[in-house]
Simulated assay, not measured.
Amino acid sequence: MATVRQSVDVNVPVSQAYNQWTQFESFPEFMGGVESVVQRDDTHLHWTTKVAGQTREFDTVVTEQQPDQRVAWNSVDGVEHAGVVTFESLGPETTRINVEFQWDPDSAVEKIGSFFGADDLQVRSDLKKFKEFIESRGTETGAWRGQVDSTPQSGEVFGSGTNAAGTESGDEGAGI
């Protein structure tokens, strides 16, 4: 398993940085190699990526989401990976975004790229693009303030989401 850890400081309040990050379908605007992200519901995402000429499709599930604090995920098929993004307020107008994930490079190209740090460089570049994206806009493109708890309840596979009002997250729809 390869591990990637990168951080970036953005000059926006923590809520603005977090709100934008929850707009998963906007990821292709600042993430290299991400062709599309389709949010199927509050916690399920379908990804299409193209790296080194190879197109991949896979699904992920958001396992934890705490407004202004963290978003965690796991893959459910395809590329094996899991990670967390945390948001740390450094002041009223500055936020540190920390990204950490582990993934299992599959092809020879992925393994070689990971060995030489291409995945770290890509994430660093993506975070720099996110910084430019959110700072240049002046506001986020949307927000989903729902909460997802990864602790499975009786009979549940991934736990239930509860939004800021305390109702089931499905009552408000997806975070797009």
Rank of each mutant, 00 (worst) to 15 (best):
Gly83Cys: 02
Glu57Asn: 13
Asp126Phe: 00
Ser160Cys: 13
Val109Thr: 14
Ala17Lys: 02
Ile176Cys: 09
Gln147Val: 08
Val14Gln: 14
Ile112Asn: 09
Thr22Trp: 07
Arg124Asn: 06
Phe58Met: 06
Val85Glu: 01
Arg56Ala: 14
Val12Gly: 03
Thr86Asp: 03
Phe130Ser: 03
Asp68Ser: 11
Ala143Pro: 07
Val84Pro: 02
Glu140Leu: 06
Asp149Glu: 10
Val10Glu: 01
Leu121Trp: 03
Glu29Arg: 14
Asp9Ala: 12
Thr55Asn: 07
Lys129His: 07
Arg124Leu: 11
Phe101His: 04
Phe133Tyr: 15
Ser36Phe: 05
Lys129Trp: 03
Asp104Lys: 13
Ser150His: 11
Thr63Lys: 13
Ser160Asn: 13
His46Thr: 10
Asp42Pro: 14
Gly83Met: 04
Pro105Trp: 06
Val12Glu: 04
Phe158His: 15
Arg70Pro: 07
Pro67Ala: 05
Thr60Val: 12
Arg40Thr: 14
Ser154Ile: 07
Leu90Lys: 12
Thr43Gln: 09
Val123Thr: 06
Ala143Val: 14
Phe24Ile: 00
Lys129Phe: 07
Lys128Gly: 10
Gly161Ala: 03
Phe87Ala: 02
Gly173Tyr: 03
Ile97Lys: 03
Thr60Ile: 04
Lys50Glu: 12
Glu100Tyr: 02
Gly159Glu: 00
Gln102Arg: 11
Ser75Phe: 02
Val71Gly: 02
Leu127Asn: 00
Arg137Thr: 01
Pro92Met: 13
Val34Gly: 01
Val79Trp: 00
Val10Ser: 09
Asn11Val: 11
Arg124Glu: 12
Ile112His: 03
Arg137Asp: 11
Gly146Met: 01
Ser136Arg: 14
Ser15Phe: 11
Arg70Tyr: 09
Glu156Met: 12
Val37Lys: 02
